[in-house]
Design a protein around this nucleic acid. Sequence first.
DNA 1: GCAACAAGTCAACGAGCGGTGACTTAGGCT
DNA 2: AGCCTAAGTCACCGCTCGTTGACTTGTTGC
Lengths: 188, 188
Amino acid sequence: MTAPRSRNAKETRAELLAAARARFAADGYERTTLRAVAADVGIDPALVIRYFGNKQELFAAAAEFTLDLPDLTGLAPEEIAGALLPRFFAVWEQDGTFLALLRAAMTSPTAAEKMREVFAAQVAPRLTAITPDHPRRRAGLLGAFVIGLATSRYVLANPGVADLSHDELTAWAEPVVRHLLTGPAPTP
Amino acid sequence: MTAPRSRNAKETRAELLAAARARFAADGYERTTLRAVAADVGIDPALVIRYFGNKQELFAAAAEFTLDLPDLTGLAPEEIAGALLPRFFAVWEQDGTFLALLRAAMTSPTAAEKMREVFAAQVAPRLTAITPDHPRRRAGLLGAFVIGLATSRYVLANPGVADLSHDELTAWAEPVVRHLLTGPAPTP
DNA sequence: GCAACAAGTCAACGAGCGGTGACTTAGGCT
DNA sequence: AGCCTAAGTCACCGCTCGTTGACTTGTTGC
């Protein structure tokens, strides 16, 4: 950190990605400047361009990740939330990558597309594996609930959601998760 | 619209507000430029400043609104969603004011504060009036669900939520709304 | 009909942005 | 030891933004 910046491309690139993630997560896409990211690492802004080409590609690289959701098949309905929520907290509180993507997705169609892609490739398959019917709708509705919780808790800091401990939020969310995934479908 | 711009301050100001709402809703705060808003109305950008002082105050004026949620007291639990959801659709699909606020709230602390304020002043009272216990948490969780639905449907356009008709979404959301507001609290 | 005042225009500013290209310097290889 | 390549620096461009202040023009009350 305070070391005289050893000339190591791999390390510099990694630090740059971490700094970019933090900035994008905290400030969103537009308000994040290449100059600020470079300053966080202690290098010249021009080097960011040399490494990543341009701002959009830096964002794309920073928004790359895997969710690693657990396998839910074989779980009893009331165990699903307990298996899912710990990953939820880890993903949103860990390094801010997902928060950066969500913030950017609100104003950038490219980021929104990436969000849909992540959902379709990494979230939906795990959920649809255990739904009795309407897999797309159930997965979509649970995704909406999760995004709403994350927005209320980590972005808006709305009291009543942000004040809850991990255990309390898990307890409150459990019946909703269970119902959306395995409860009866509405009768038309 | 194509008229030679009659010199009427009240009217110009109203058109300006409508254009600002549309731009903020579509592009977010940072990507919305005063020049674009002014061009939409067909006037000089300097006039926007003369009317609203600066960009932040223009946004504040554009984000002002009332939700007009219906009175829920006396309703049976299964009737609540049916009374609430029509307002939900109206608010989000009407003129984009709320969408503008949500988009801006993702990156601007000022807008996030306004979001909390609207929730506390206009949403929470209506909900807490019918909750048997934990009013803040129940209202907060329902707010999270609603924000998640709006984000998935109107911002991310995530299939499975965006594809549903009003009636279908109401039917799917009804048990969740009912449970969050009136269902049993989790046992610690 | 004409002045006075408000509504609207015009040109320009200073700052900050993303991005470019030529330069300098450190460090590993022979 | 000395070079050669890659890592990092530097000065700068062109652009767009929010905002300003001086100007012009239409409308309205007398």
